[in-house]
Amino acid sequence: MTMMEKVIAASTASSNGRFFTVWLVMSWYSSNIGVLLLNKYLLSNYGFKYPIFLTMCHMTACSVFSYVAVAVMKITPMQTVSSRIQFYKIATLSFVFCGSVVSGNVSLRYLPVSFNQAIGATTPFFTAMFSYIMTVRRESWITYVTLIPVVTGVFIASGGEPSFHLFGFIMCISATAARALKSVVQGILLSSDGEKLDSMNLLLYMSPIAVVILLPTTIIMERNVIGLMMELTNKDIKLIFYLLFNSSLAYFVNLTNFLVTKHTSALTLQVLGNAKGAVAVVVSILLFRNPVSLVGMLGYSLTVIGVILYSESKKRSN
């Protein structure tokens, strides 16, 4: 192979690599925003008022697809649970994760996606708080200062939100706090080299445990869900398609998240995540036509700026 051919081959490989990365990012954006909007449509607009059952459907799909992806397709090497203690740690994470997803789905019944995303952007605040409480790890003073606009922005957005609902707000804050708690607990529980699992293997083990937790919870708290679901299906068979597609999309979010991190970096994923929230807000407003106020948008913008400053501060301190 001549030097020119080698240059052309390298250029083609680089171009294909960039194209694949862009495709991954677009897929991650589409699945992330898609599952959020479809959850909102099902739980609020469509009238399927069973967030716990919907979460159980998501976890069931994640259980099946995770096994296929890891054990059959070998997307990532399969890691085994080495001890009973490690299993208990994973079960603890699964419980916290269930609380996060269920609370988030409940909040979508009462809040527009735009406000939901504004509250969700405060995750760094709760992460810093739980990290300090549980590990006594202090960040630099400038990092804590950057959290002020994060929290202030949500207060401003709440005051200017036309569709504010107190219970939905509490559920969304709970979901955001639980999401942050899960990341901190994961860092504590699975910190040793022998216990670390990549995100796909962790999902493989967490999902079935989540189904076991959510099944009795659904039976107790949404006891008439099967009968009413059959009644809704008789009226509109598309409900089955919505649930299957929505559940598959929930797994695809985790898969693309893992692949984007693998082919870029965790920092890139964080930056893309900040932009994803803004895109989700715009798309949801266009689709659902929920009213927004200038004060609310200013509050959300302040929160996003705070999150960006927080990310930059963390990057510099590390």
Rank of each mutant, 00 (worst) to 15 (best):
L294C: 11
C98F: 09
G159Q: 01
N224F: 02
L287T: 01
T264C: 10
V151H: 02
G194L: 03
I213A: 14
G17N: 10
L228F: 11
L249V: 04
V281R: 05
I188L: 12
A61I: 00
L298V: 11
S66I: 13
G187P: 08
L298I: 08
L239R: 03
S66R: 11
G99W: 05
T303H: 00
R109V: 14
L298S: 10
V185S: 07
L294V: 14
L269H: 06
R138W: 06
Y29D: 03
V145P: 02
K196W: 09
C172Y: 11
S63Q: 05
I213L: 15
N234E: 10
L197Q: 09
K235A: 15
V101N: 11
G168S: 09
K89N: 00
I148Y: 01
V279S: 05
V307C: 00
C98V: 01
S100W: 08
N290P: 08
T218S: 15
L111T: 07
V154R: 02
N290I: 13
Y67S: 11
I133D: 01
G160D: 06
M200T: 13
L302K: 02
P291T: 09
V102F: 14
S317C: 06
L202I: 06
V307Q: 02
L189W: 13
F19V: 08
S82T: 14
L197T: 01
M221I: 04
S311I: 05
S284H: 01
N257T: 08
Y205R: 08
F87Y: 15
V304T: 03
M1V: 07
T303V: 05
S192F: 01
P162I: 00
S27G: 14
A61S: 10
N39V: 07
L239C: 08
F130S: 08
N257F: 05
S114E: 07
I305F: 08
N16K: 14
G194W: 05
S100A: 07
F169E: 13
I188S: 12
N224K: 01
T55V: 11
S265G: 04
F241M: 10
